[in-house]
């Protein structure tokens, strides 16, 4: 069974395709690509990865390295973001989320342009990611009333939590991939709310599932269905009530 919510808690929905580009491709080439998209995505930002390194042993320390990987092109209203990177492509719809079809179709249009411009040597990975922020109208809640997977604290310890982050990685054998479910408390937008993020990413790096464009877009449907299954399996009826009118189909 699938659900459609009047006030879906989706803050960001994202399709990501990792690629290997020809070795001659550089940031300048990606920047020129913006010319084709300026009308719909006029805002250009540099995309930088910050990579932290922890080390243990005789010398314990941490360091961070910044690598410029490409560009994020944003729509004027900041609600749609298209990333053209040296390691891949992604398209994100931030709230308000419309529906899967509009996300998929726009991602498809942009992917086609990105592919023509960069001529990837190969596709490395495909992922669908949905980030939901669930705002619960109470400063003090029992997580078990709203979520079906919760951190369990030893009965010998205080049961009150000021915050938590839980990251679960589920193997997805049918697609030789993984589903990463991150559930975390975040700062709420109002003092009388408790906010929890449910961040679900489904991905695979197995090229047998995306050897053609047709297969790739079929795979995305499978990833999205898997994401829906985990979202619905993670929440309770009390949570669904927060999303307004629900249509089951």
């Amino acid at each position: 069974m699938q659900f459609h919510y009047q006030n879906a808690p989706i803050k960001e929905a994202l399709i990501d395709i990792g690629v290997e580009l020809p070795p001659t491709t550089n940031l300048g080439h990606l920047e020129l690509f913006h010319e084709q998209l300026k009308h719909d995505y006029p805002v250009k930002r540099r995309r930088i990865y910050i990579e932290g390194q922890f080390s243990a042993g005789p010398q314990i320390g941490a360091s961070a390295r910044q690598t410029e990987m490409g560009f994020a092109f944003e729509s004027n209203d900041n609600r749609r973001v298209f990333q053209a990177r040296l390691d891949g492509f992604s398209f994100a719809q931030l709230e308000p989320y419309e529906n899967w079809a509009s996300l998929r179709d726009e991602a498809g249009r942009l992917w086609s342009k990105y592919k023509d411009w960069t001529q990837p040597v190969k596709i490395r990975s495909v992922a669908v990611r949905y980030i939901n922020q669930i705002d619960i109208p109470s400063g003090r809640i029992d997580y078990k009333d709203y979520f079906r997977t919760t951190p369990e604290v030893s009965p010998d310890l205080p049961q009150e939590l000021a915050g938590f982050t839980m990251r679960l990685i589920f193997p997805q054998i049918a697609i030789n991939g993984v589903l990463v479910l991150t559930q975390a408390s975040v700062s709420p937008s109002s003092s009388n709310l408790a906010s929890v993020v449910l961040d679900i990413t489904v991905s695979t790096e197995d090229a047998t599932f995306f050897s053609t464009d047709e297969e790739l877009w079929r795979l995305l449907e499978v990833l999205r269905d898997k994401k829906n299954q985990f979202f619905e399996g993670s929440i309770t009826e009390a949570t669904r009530k927060l999303f307004g009118e629900t249509i089951k189909y």
Partner: peptide, 21 residues
Amino acid sequence: ELNYTAPDSFSAALADRSDYW
């Protein structure tokens, strides 16, 4: 055990790609 290779580097990289976060 399942005879697979965990693509953990890819999942970690995705953390950087969200505009929401």
